[in-house]
Structures are given as structure tokens and as C-alpha cells.
């Protein structure tokens, strides 16, 4: 298990889009270290022969027919929007193009 530093948390907070103060970063590093320390033994339990389970029950091929349902009106779609203009969601400038 690697050490979880303030910088680790800063990186994670960037990935998770949560702004954090210096104090919060420090505190979170300590808490995360404790939690990860407590759960890390998980990685030593199962060998390569144990398959991973991502769904609790073995369902498969759940699909729907390609039939159009009732869409929301633009008004309904925008009803909860923090900001809107011309029937669209409005957001501040985007820093980087993907």
C-alpha cells in the first residue's frame, strides 16, 4: 500500500472536481490513509483463480425494443436548470476543449 499524501488527495480532488482547501487536503489525506489501511487486506485475499463479481445476480441480455417513448418538453428538461437561455442549458466558459 502506497502512502496517501496531500498531493495524492489534490490529484484525486481534481479528478473528482471537488475544490478543497489546503486544510481539507491535509485532513483528507490522513483519513484516507486510515481507511485504505483498513481495507487494503482485500487485495491479499483472493487469488487469480477467483472470478470477479460485478453484478450480484447473473442476469444477461436485458434489452429494450427500439421504440420511441414520450420525450420531455424543452421546458420540462430545463425546469431544474440553474441557468438557461434560448431553450438550452447555459454554462460558464469552458477552459479546455476535449
Amino acid at each position: 500500500m502506497s502512502e496517501i499524501t496531500r498531493d495524492t488527495v489534490a490529484h484525486l480532488a481534481t479528478l473528482a472536481h471537488i475544490e478543497m482547501s489546503e486544510e481539507q487536503l491535509q485532513a483528507m489525506a490522513g483519513e484516507l490513509q486510515q481507511i485504505v489501511g483498513a481495507v487494503a487486506q482485500v487485495s491479499e485475499v483472493a487469488g487469480d483463480d477467483v472470478p470477479a463479481t460485478s453484478h450480484p445476480l447473473p442476469l444477461r441480455n436485458v434489452m429494450r425494443e427500439d421504440v420511441v417513448g414520450e420525450p420531455l418538453t424543452a421546458e420540462e428538461a430545463l425546469s431544474g436548470a440553474p441557468d438557461a437561455e434560448d431553450g438550452q442549458f447555459k454554462v460558464p466558459a469552458i477552459l479546455e476543449e476535449d
Partner: peptide, 22 residues
Amino acid sequence: TYALSAGYYDAYYGSAQKVRTL
């Protein structure tokens, strides 16, 4: 975010899913 991030997935999320099987 930590458990899923590059380099840790197998040790954490992947292992946890195996424990789930157990």
C-alpha cells in the same frame, strides 16, 4: 476515485470484486 484510478484498480476495485465472489 482513488480505488478506480490508474494503477490501483486491480489492487482495490478488482480485488474487492473477487472478495464479493468469495
